[in-house]
Design a protein around this nucleic acid. Sequence first.
DNA 1: CTGTTAGCGCTTTCAC
DNA 2: GTGAAAGCGCTAACAG
Lengths: 334, 334
Amino acid sequence: MASKKTATMKDVAKEAGVALGTVSKMINGLPVSEEKRRKIEAAIKSLNYEVNTYAQGLRAQKSNLVALIIPNTNNPFFSSFTNQVEYALYKRGKKLLLCCAGGIAQKEIEYLNMAINNKVDGIIALTYSDIGNYISQDIPLVVFDRYFENRDLPRVASDNFAGACLAVEKLLEFGCRHPVYIRFYSFLPGEADKRKDGYLYACAKHHLEPDFIDVENSKNNIAVMKDFIEKHKNKDGTLSFDGVFAHTDYYGYIFQKLLRQEGFRVPEDVQIIGFDGINIFGNADDGLFISSICQPVDALAEKCVEILLSGNSSLTPSLTLLPVQYRGGGTTLE
Amino acid sequence: MASKKTATMKDVAKEAGVALGTVSKMINGLPVSEEKRRKIEAAIKSLNYEVNTYAQGLRAQKSNLVALIIPNTNNPFFSSFTNQVEYALYKRGKKLLLCCAGGIAQKEIEYLNMAINNKVDGIIALTYSDIGNYISQDIPLVVFDRYFENRDLPRVASDNFAGACLAVEKLLEFGCRHPVYIRFYSFLPGEADKRKDGYLYACAKHHLEPDFIDVENSKNNIAVMKDFIEKHKNKDGTLSFDGVFAHTDYYGYIFQKLLRQEGFRVPEDVQIIGFDGINIFGNADDGLFISSICQPVDALAEKCVEILLSGNSSLTPSLTLLPVQYRGGGTTLE
DNA sequence: CTGTTAGCGCTTTCAC
DNA sequence: GTGAAAGCGCTAACAG
């Protein structure tokens, strides 16, 4: 049962028979005699004391909060990343201020200012707008999966290029002869753009003719995909491609549905590899929705937090790429 | 560009040529002469001033933070709920402290204490442990989807009973003769338990023999489902049931996969309705993974926040049930 | 209406 | 090592 009134450090000091400052020191890991330490610990326990974040923050001009600015938590990749960030912070005694900016520039900047004014210890940003100009020098910030030209902020991302190559090579390994690539891009340059570069590179390396959908994300995505399928039908009704590397699991899943609607079999007629590694209903035990190049979400989150809180900015790498991994999910023959 | 050093209220007062207290009053919406208001506003703008949350929180013993204690954000229902809570708070100028407790009792209580000690304005809790005993009288708390015997905390949930009835009736409407129910329950009593009650009630009403899986959630769920299918095979290889009301979309989706693996067609041979209304990859435009009784996630979140912040506890309903809705998602014939 | 002032709970000098 | 004391920036109570 939580006590009626929260105990203050003063109460602890009185209970332990020491000075206020001594309690503060012990809590902050400064040297205190063994005897007083025991008394203070006992007092803390008996009073169920916890430091008041506001007083601490006011005094020290900092908090134990870290803001995560992200478009939303509906997208399963974002929500999984959020979950892992929360955990990485929890392990370090920090709390997560979740900011869903919906990809709206004005809201992203609003949250950014809010975070700065709330004296958060740091900000992890996965934004759609170029926030480079809006951050103040002295607040730690890590950018996930994006890059901005006008500012060199530390960035963390998956190795998208290598992942794309891996996708193509897996498709070839599983018997595909004509792997195509599909994506619907947004206007902002991000690390994920390198998935296309990787696809093109792998095609060149294996002497394949690249073929892809690469149009701007819109309400017409489905129509574009249907059209693509239609245009790739041979005279005998088969398809002129037999493998798909989808920019994300999402598009891979949608594309799979369209193919099946058209009577094609996945993976027998067409094999599909997506990117992200989205688990079925977020449940790691049940495998993936589709075969995928999986991003190491836990490692990515951990790395973001680690870099953010490391403090030593001179040792901070400007770009950290983490390795991805192929996992089968029923849309490939292996 | 954020300024180097944050201005304080004192700076604003000096700049505007008024007293500190006057600035405070204006900011807090208390009456101030039009003339000074203008001066203060100008000073605020020119100094790019924003109130310091910590000082404010320290003094007022409250913050603009609301804690959401939830098992995780991996589960798409939780992540969608989180997203909507964030939005509902944003609209009210509050910030979200996200606490993923993983369904671990000790962690839930830890977060609860943390939230209380951080003087959050309120707590929205979707917990697995009985937190009724651990909360102090004076902190607003709303329980989502759960109930605890020892304490009457305000609760918000979907109308699970009506939803279950609706599911059965939709299955009948679409031509099913033998709808079964499947769930894997956890140990804690929650509002969702009423889905089974609703199923049983609907069966009785329509003179159907109830038939279901209702075992504790475990690693053997798949085996249990496979076994259920096996036991319901007729001599001629058809199944003795033709409709499934799944306790959640998740189990409905898994069950569908198993049925298809066994060569049964969904929805032609067996129709499936889940519960929750999970959108494909969280994207509202692309429909559902399976046909479902959809929970009104936005209204649920909005209601939780509204009740939490309403303040007037004497007018707070002890239970608020929100209506659900059927939506087709390809696993039914309509 | 406005100015003055006493703390909120904590960290951090500074003497001892 | 330890204690005393000065604020961090703000709100609220009070006197004008």
